[in-house]
Design a protein around this nucleic acid. Structure first.
Lengths: 369, 369
DNA sequence: AAGCTCTCTGAATCGTCAC
DNA sequence: AGTGACGATTCAGAGAGCT
């Protein structure tokens, strides 16, 4: 008997490609078990026979509209069903990415909202090398749209803000991503030298998605696995994947591809983290440790206000008492204030933010004794 | 009796702003009479509490009564009705543009398709100066989406391919447009010096829409006229406009604005295009694109130092972590360092500056397609 | 005049934890 | 489950005012 890795994840077929219709397969997996779903569904579905109108010899306008509506209805039914199955699989803290073009993305987005998913961003993949519009009748179709949504309004989700900011030269990542389409050696070929899949996504796209919205060890499911870009990048990044794909050809190509992929070293997978992840240090510790003395005077960063430190780690100023945050907020008439960066103390004649003292304590805590 | 300008256009109140609910007003106008509709409907933002910038200033949110809907169902009903009224007004050769954000655009897009409109492109307005995400919880919402659709599948529509190509330095116009938001003197103020409308669109956006999808003399209708950007640009470009707006304040501002607008001389249409600076390439892109692998070792140009690449595009060396610039500066004890020219990677046994990889990306970005 | 600093602002679904 | 305290968090560009 194997030990389950995580609660609720016992029965998950990790790092495998499952054969079959994604709706049925997803419904056979345990609910609330997956951290992220990335889905690149087809939009050119073959319609089922019963939804086709009878083969009239002549088509008038009314029939035309009915036909159009019936095909949208079939597509909507498909979308509703696979999204519901995906939603069932997601942990409450999970999230989903879907990608599409104007043919299908509006219907997917509306259905996501209808099912209670909470859209976090729509992200535009701006292709640096799209296919031109040869006939000159429209704009070059130079982008695709992704939708990123949490499971419900208010639910927690993973967002590695600092890592993405690092990926973007220190500026916060925007909702428009400029990345090239998948070409060259990355583009998989079949035995005949033809491209193995018509819409293979670039690994760079998945890299950004997975670095930004999962942590190492998270389970990532792709219900339209194709040639397995999601699985390949998940493996490189130390995430677990589950693929679902009904075409044997694609499964074979994906299997081989993923086998040849190597996981990056552990050190390379650590990403920049935010202060939020660091341990909380009560201001009182600075006093207890003698880094600040009771009675010592702090000055606001802008030099306008002063307050005295008390033995219990509160401040007392003109007509105000309370925490470093409360006194700062009261002085500034602001709804809130980060006292750590607002207050300074005198060190060798110079104003130094008290946050530096907190950093000393944190560094000491991080040291392995 | 006045001579009708065009067949079916006899009763059109050209170049006026009509007062009232846009659905009722549109239904009172003659069908099949309008060449283009540009619609910027309420987005149904569903904002909850206040939002403050990191400096504690409060963001002036779009909390206007006209953007409040009780549910998606109510918003969908509204969308269905105004789109049906718009469709009735359009000539068979007409087209429509709608603009929205992820809050509403998926619902609009799906309803456009349901009613038989034929989507020609979705066009992304990439804002060069969007509002940042102040809390670091999502991607910067840096774009809005427009949908361009003809009245029906197969119907003729206007597309001035060559004019747009000229606007784009001789290169085919793409589906992503980089334009700044409306600020400065273009942003209209009321008597109190406050912004006259919370969501005024830039004239540059309408300029491109109207140059691309109408001809001089065409009738352009905007059912959510606001402060009249559509009317102002239409007048400049020698198109006829019809505005519908139910808020008297907005109508007054728009009226005054349009009165002061002059129709362009032909040659005034030439716009000087600013020379583009070299695009900034984040180092993280080299990692995302697989040009460098997480875990790969870089060597300083002088051969003295080494550091490893991490998945988020930062470097980790001996006791140092950070961007390519930060780690280089730390090693050299210098205040700053150009990491692009400082670091090298191994290619076929030889040390190659990473700047060469950046040049590859830039070359690709500069390529016309 | 040119350049500098400082201030302000923009369609935004913008916390989390302990008690 | 509701309350209160902590404390993390921003980019581009315009305009005003000053040197």
């Amino acid at each position: 008997m194997t030990k389950p890795r995580k609660k609720g994840a016992a029965a998950l077929p990790l790092n495998t490609i499952l054969d079959g219709d994604c709706i049925e397969v997803m419904n056979s997996l345990p609910e609330n078990s997956v951290d992220l779903i990335f889905a690149d569904p087809p939009y050119n579905l073959q319609l089922k026979g019963d939804l086709h109108r009878p083969d009239n010899s002549k088509v008038d306008a009314v029939d035309d509209e009915w036909d159009q509506f019936s095909s949208f209805a079939a597509y909507d039914k498909f979308t509703r069903e696979w999204l519901a199955a995906a939603r069932r699989l997601l942990k409450p803290t999970g999230a989903i990415w879907v990608i599409g073009s104007y043919h299908n993305v509006f219907r997917m987005g509306a259905e996501l909202q209808n099912q209670g998913f909470w859209i976090l961003n729509d992200v535009v993949w701006r292709k640096s090398n799209p296919m031109p519009n040869f006939r000159g009748k429209r704009f070059t179709n130079a982008h695709e749209t992704m939708i990123w949504a949490s499971k419900s309004e208010g639910s927690k989700y993973t967002f590695n803000y600092e890592a993405l900011k690092s990926l973007n030269e220190g500026v916060q990542m925007r909702s428009d991503w400029v990345l090239p389409i998948c070409t060259g050696h990355e583009r998989l070929k079949n035995e005949n030298g033809e491209k193995a899949h018509p819409t293979q996504k670039p690994e760079s796209l998945l890299h950004r998605v997975l670095v930004g919205s999962t942590n190492p060890g998270d389970v990532v499911l792709d219900p339209f696995f194709g040639t397995g870009t999601t699985g390949a990048v998940a493996k490189m990044l130390g995430r677990e994947f589950i693929g679902i794909e009904r075409e044997e050809e694609y499964r074979k190509v994906a299997e081989k591809r993923i086998k040849s992929v190597k996981k990056y070293d552990k050190e390379a997978l650590e990403v920049s983290t935010s202060k939020r992840a660091q341990p909380r240090v009560p201001f009182g510790q600075l006093v207890e440790r003698g880094m600040l003395r009771p009675g010592e005077e702090l000055t606001s960063m802008n030099g306008r206000y002063k307050a005295k430190v008390r033995a219990d780690g509160t401040l007392v100023g003109k007509d105000v008492k309370g925490s470093i945050h409360q006194v700062g907020a009261a002085y500034e008439g602001a709804p809130s204030c980060n006292g750590w960066t607002y207050w300074t103390y005198k060190k060798e004649g110079k104003k130094v933010p008290i946050d530096l003292l907190r950093q000393e304590i944190r560094a000491e805590m991080a040291r392995p004794n």
